[in-house]
Structures are given as C-alpha cells and as structure tokens.
Design a protein around this nucleic acid. Sequence first.
DNA 1: ATGTATGCAAACCATTTGCAATGAC
DNA 2: GTCATTGCAAATGGTTTGCATACAT
Lengths: 172, 172
Amino acid sequence: MIESDTCFYMENKIYTEIQNSFAEYLTEKKLRKTEERFRILEEICTFPGHFDICALHRKLDDQNFHVSKATLYNTLEVLIDGGLIVPLQVSCNAVQYKLRKLAEMHSHVICTKCKTIREIKNYFPKDQLDSVKTPRFTPEFASLYIYGLCSKCKNKMQKKNVSDKKNNKRKQ
Amino acid sequence: MIESDTCFYMENKIYTEIQNSFAEYLTEKKLRKTEERFRILEEICTFPGHFDICALHRKLDDQNFHVSKATLYNTLEVLIDGGLIVPLQVSCNAVQYKLRKLAEMHSHVICTKCKTIREIKNYFPKDQLDSVKTPRFTPEFASLYIYGLCSKCKNKMQKKNVSDKKNNKRKQ
DNA sequence: ATGTATGCAAACCATTTGCAATGAC
DNA sequence: GTCATTGCAAATGGTTTGCATACAT
C-alpha cells in the first residue's frame, strides 16, 4: 500500500546522530539501554518512509533478531516520547510510524480511493511554522497531507463512468 | 480527548448543499437513498470538528435513531468515497472522521503526548495547493497537521524534570 | 420482483495487559 | 540486589464479515 519516490536512506552520520540522541534521552529519563532498543531503532532507520509494526517485526526476524510484539510496542512508545519517531495513522488497519527526521522532510500525498501514500518534499518547512499562531501550544514540526486521486484510480474511474453511460444508453 | 476552539456549526444552506451532493453521488453510483444514510450524514453535520464511530453512534442513539455499528461503518465508507467526509491522520484508538468541508477549512494541532486534537484556521488554503508539484496525481485538497506539545503536557513534563533533578541532587 | 442495505452475532486482528523470568544498573 | 525490561499468553476493543431479513428501485 505504500510507495516512496524519494528513495532517501539515512546516511551514517545522521544515523549516529539519531542513535546518540536516543541514548541521551534514555539517560535523561533513567531508562535502560538495552540491545533490543538500539537494534529496533537501527532497523527503523533503514526504512525510506513509513512502516508498521508488522513490517518492522518481519524485518528484524529476517536479520535473526527476535523480539516480541509487546517489546516492539513498548519500544516504539519510548521512541515516540523521545521524539525520534512519529506515529501517523493513515486509515489502513495498522498505525504507521516514521522517523521524525524523515517526517520533517516530507509532505504526504494520499489517494482517497486506494489509500496509497506517497512522499514528496515538504511544502511546509519549519520557517513557515513560525508564522502559525497556536495559542497554548508549542509546535515542533508540521506535515502537509494532500488528498486526491492517483492516476491509476482516476483512469479506472473515468473508464467506469464511460461504460456506465454506455450502459445507460443501451437501457434507454 | 477532543476539543475545538472554532465552534463552527454548519449553516442550513451549506447543510442542504452537502445533502444534495450526497444524493447526487448516490444517484450517480446507483446506490440506494435510505433513511439511515441521510440521518447519519445529518448527524455528522452537527459535529463542530472531528468525531469517531462511537461518538456518532451515541449521538444517534440519543436522538432515538438506532443503527447498527455495521451500518455506520458501511455508510462512512460510502461518505468517504463520495468525498463528503475524510478520515483524519491521528493515532488514537479509533479512527477520527470529519466533514470534508470542515477539513478544508482547518489545520490541525495535535499534542503528541496526550493526542488531543485542536482545530485552527487552515494555513494551507487551496490557492497554495496549485504551487505543489504532484506528478501522476490530481490533488483535491490539503490539510496541515502541526505536531507538538499542548501547554498541559508541557507543564507536566517540566515539573517532572525539575523533581527528577531534585532527586538527583539528594542522591548525590 | 430484484438485488442492495441493514442488523445481528461471530470472527478478525492490532494493540494492551498481567505476570514470571531476565538482565541493566 | 533491585527493579526496569522482556516474552508469552490471554484479554480487549475497534473493525470486518457472513447471512437472514427488510426495503428502495
């Protein structure tokens, strides 16, 4: 259901930065630095866009690193609190997550018909955020969601309409 | 979990417009015009912001109009396909929906901690949409999601940090 | 008359919870 | 040694599905 034009993979430097910031957060909050937490974050960094728990679980399994779903949910919660990833519920069955660094870089293009999400460069960067008035609220980042029809669905719909009209004429 | 500053209620004229557009859609797609479908849409129009299935169900029950959850899910699907409502991108337990007319008018301010959604005037109106390049995609409307911390959560967090530091000093 | 829409109950599946075992500090 | 973290299995709850009945066309 998900595709990504912007084949952006984390550079090593950025990845180390993310890892460090997670370690800092864990120290600050007096949480334990377990192997699971870091392996999970590492795996997350290899996703070019968003992912759901199942995909992440599979990917870790493929690397022969087995964690329980419960641990995954726990860890994602910690990563969200630490500001390293963001949840974004698109109306598929499972919640989608995404590295916050990536989320800050992207806008989202969503086909209302087939629910495919595509990521494009962010059309609402941080400096624009300063001009937004949000009383009693401290904004951290913004993301733009653009709804519409992908070319496939649009084509299907047009064909359907044409054949509908033909059928109508035949019936008359 | 939900609050709304902009106490916007649908004017009658707009409401009739919405109803008509739904009727048109049903005709076009050869779907049946049932009482349930129109009562559900009517009730949806009274929400000043977003809602979830449960709230909608309760509201209809209060009006002594009883529909099954299955019918609600079916109807919402039809309303989405017809472009009358949109599902929102928030990760709460239940999917949030919203009249598309309202979604077009609003930006969304979401606290990443307590998941409260607040609605503010749209900072990404339609004319800006023209400047966005979305290849193989026909955009219809856009909505801006601003993530951050609400004042309550921020206060809580600061208090926690302060007490953490105090504890650290005591221990030393 | 026909076949779509509804209601109900069961099924499904993502997420949460409780608890014993493990391991970071 | 202590207590947070993990893993497992059971519970929860939102959503979907299957099927008999109702009703829009």
